[in-house]
């Protein structure tokens, strides 16, 4: 027996009531979805802003300083270089949480000097712990197979041997940032998670020739914090390096010129691309450090336009002699 369907008669009042119900359903669903979506995301600042910002990690009131230590031994030269600036205690205090930003861009052996030397990583991490640091984290975003890069460069083993923790990039580690007055770094993902809880950052980079920018040193080293299709920035390399230096105000930087990659950078590939230059630079002024590093490559400040740009942006001085660098011989 067919049952007569139940009919509902609609009028204007019913229509409005149903429209309200539908609207409420939409609002409730959106709210639920948004709540679930945001709850599942980690690494976001507690104030829930869309963009993250990096704090200034430099030591307040600490003027621009630089030391230039000559010698063959990386551990000796960096230790003596830091001592010349007042010792590691001048930078790292008890309980500090330190981030070492290394150059682990390539899965190449330390012998090729395309990446931060592992002996240097181990020594700096050791010094930080000696000064009372509560944690030392080592990171970079090589994009291509980070495990291989950290492993084959020897950085992972060196970090672990000195008690530091290696943080390799993962998708969830990236958050967007915008650099004030920037033309390139606008709402762009950076490797942000390793910075959580950090209050000191030390950049450690080798001196290298660079096909596009002329040189890869401490300022270019921050490029490894960028996520996304960052290769597009190579079209405006001097601007992106300057903006990166605005983004990251380090506690101090270490520029490793013990072995300099003179040609075919930034990858190199042959020992014949390298030159023994036996120089370690430690500086609170990354512009000055790179300006001196340029001389190891046989280049001048005018050969590297990003130095002038960074100086004009008030990030430091390209005339490193103004800092009265402390020169010392080790070994």
């Amino acid at each position: 027996m067919n049952r007569e369907p139940e009919y509902i008669q609609t009028n204007r009042r019913d229509f409005l009531r149903r429209a309200l119900k539908a609207g409420a359903s939409v609002a409730a669903t959106c709210s639920l979805f948004a709540w679930l979506y945001h709850r599942s995301r980690s690494g976001r600042p507690s104030d829930d802003k869309e963009l993250v910002t990096l704090p200034d990690f430099s030591i307040p009131g600490f003027p621009g300083k630089m030391s230039i230590a000559l010698g063959e031994n990386r551990a000796d030269t960096v230790r003596r270089g830091i001592e010349a600036l007042g010792g590691i205690e001048a930078f790292i205090k008890r309980g500090d949480r330190v981030l070492l930003k290394v150059n682990a861009a390539f899965a190449t052996p330390p012998m090729l000097s395309a990446t931060t030397n592992p002996l240097l990583v181990a020594e700096v991490a050791r010094l930080c712990y000696l000064a009372g640091a509560s944690s030392v984290v080592v990171t970079d975003n090589p994009i291509n197979d980070p495990e291989s890069c950290f492993s084959l460069s020897g950085i992972a083993a060196a970090a672990r041997s000195s008690g530091a923790r290696v943080l390799m990039p993962r998708e969830s580690f990236f958050e967007p940032t915008t650099v004030p007055k920037a033309t390139l770094i606008k709402n762009w993902p950076i490797l942000w998670r390793p910075f959580r809880g950090i209050n000191k950052i030390v950049g450690i980079a080798p001196v290298k020739d660079h096909h596009r920018s002329g040189a890869s040193m401490t300022m270019k080293n921050w490029y490894g914090l960028l996520g996304g299709r960052r290769n597009i920035f190579h079209q405006d390399i001097h601007t992106i390096i300057t903006e990166l230096a605005v983004l990251v105000r380090p506690t101090f930087v270490i520029l490793d010129g013990i072995t300099t990659m003179m040609t075919n950078g930034p990858t190199g590939g042959s020992i014949s691309d390298l030159k023994q230059t036996d120089t370690m630079i430690v500086s609170t002024d990354q512009v000055a450090a790179d300006a001196f590093g340029a001389t190891l490559l046989g280049k001048s400040v005018t050969d590297l336009p990003y130095l002038a740009k960074a100086e004009a942006a008030g990030l430091g001085t390209a005339d490193y002699e103004l800092l009265n660098p402390i020169r010392l011989q080790t070994g």
Partner: peptide
């Protein structure tokens, strides 16, 4: 059906604000 459509639309709408070149690149 309406709820399902709204859920999908909300997901698309929110995700387009959360474009991550880092993910695309990988």
């Amino acid at each position: 059906i309406l709820l399902a459509l709204v859920t999908i639309a909300s997901g698309v709408f929110l995700s387009q604000f959360r474009y991550s070149p880092a993910i695309i690149e990988s």
